Simulated scan of single mutants.
Amino acid sequence: MGHGGDVIDELTRDHEEVEELFTNIEELPSGDPMRKRYADQATMELVRHAVAEEEYLYPAVREHIVGGDALADKELNDHTAAERTMKDLESCEADDPRFDVLMSKLMTEIRAHVLDEEDNLFPRLRNACSAEQLERLGEKVRQAKRTAPTRPHPAAPDRPPANKLLDRGAGLVDRLRDAMSGRGRS
């Protein structure tokens, strides 16, 4: 969940971890209960990652990159679509006929989003910010992920300050639910 380094290194490692979970899902046969466990873990990681980006990365994009408002808005729209898919997936077991369709949709959405961030947003941010700014953002992102929600909340605000206020409470409730249900444990 926290790797160290600047914001781009931190978020890129998150992308790699989620891709590994997606690969694990793809390697298992349809209906295998482990697919649901991997999907839950991917959702937990994706939600924490998205919350951290919404709290710190996208405000920095708006501030430091020319045309950053449009870029951040596009990324936020990607998050909203993926959160809706994750919310639908949350109620499916691996043997549910909708599971494979929703999982495929989520993988497509996330892979396109990751490609866009890594090929477009991250290089532009690296050019626009100092190494020190990127390091500070990395630490803020790691802190945000520690208290972020672990379940999708597609109707929740995605911009400061409302998201910062509500995410902490939702994160606490989500982590309690996860502990009681065993969700996210291998």
Rank of each mutant, 00 (worst) to 15 (best):
A42R: 01
M103Q: 11
G67E: 11
M86Q: 09
A70W: 15
A81P: 12
M44H: 12
E93S: 06
P33F: 01
E83I: 00
K87H: 13
N120H: 08
A112H: 13
M107T: 13
E75C: 05
P97V: 08
H49E: 03
K36C: 05
F122T: 11
E109S: 01
L121H: 02
V47F: 02
S104C: 06
H113E: 02
E75P: 04
D95W: 04
L28D: 05
R111H: 10
H49Y: 01
L71H: 07
A50Q: 05
D88E: 08
S91E: 07
R35A: 08
D40V: 13
A94I: 00
M107Q: 11
A42I: 02
L115E: 14
H64G: 09
E109I: 01
A81N: 09
L121T: 09
E109K: 00
T108L: 11
K105P: 07
G68F: 03
M86W: 06
L46A: 07
F122Q: 05
Y38T: 07
F99K: 04
D78F: 01
D96C: 02
E117N: 00
M107S: 03
G67I: 05
K87N: 11
A42H: 01
V101I: 06
E63T: 12
E117K: 02
K87L: 15
A42N: 04
C92K: 08
H49N: 03
C92P: 03
Q41G: 07
N120F: 12
M107Y: 04
E83P: 00
V114T: 12
A82I: 01
L102C: 09
L115K: 14
T85F: 00
L57C: 07
V61T: 09
D96H: 00
I65T: 04
E55F: 07
D32E: 13
V114W: 00
E109Y: 01
A50P: 01
N120S: 11
D78R: 02
L76N: 11
S30K: 15
N77M: 14
D100V: 06
A50S: 14
T43G: 12
E55L: 14
T108C: 11
G68T: 10
K36G: 05
V51G: 02
L57E: 04
R35S: 11
I110D: 01
L115D: 15
M86G: 05
R37T: 14
M103A: 15
D40F: 11
K105D: 06
K105F: 02
V114N: 01
V51T: 10
H79M: 02
A52P: 03
I110P: 00
E45P: 02
R62Q: 13
H49R: 00
D96V: 01
K36D: 12
E55T: 11
M44V: 14
R48W: 02
M34D: 14
Q41C: 03
E53P: 10
D78A: 06
V51I: 15
E53C: 10
A72K: 12
E75G: 05
Y58G: 09
D73E: 15
E75A: 15
R37H: 06
F99M: 02
M107R: 12
E54S: 08
K74E: 13
A112Y: 08
E75T: 10
A42K: 00
P97H: 12
Y38D: 09
L46I: 11
P97E: 14
D119L: 13
V61C: 04
K36M: 11
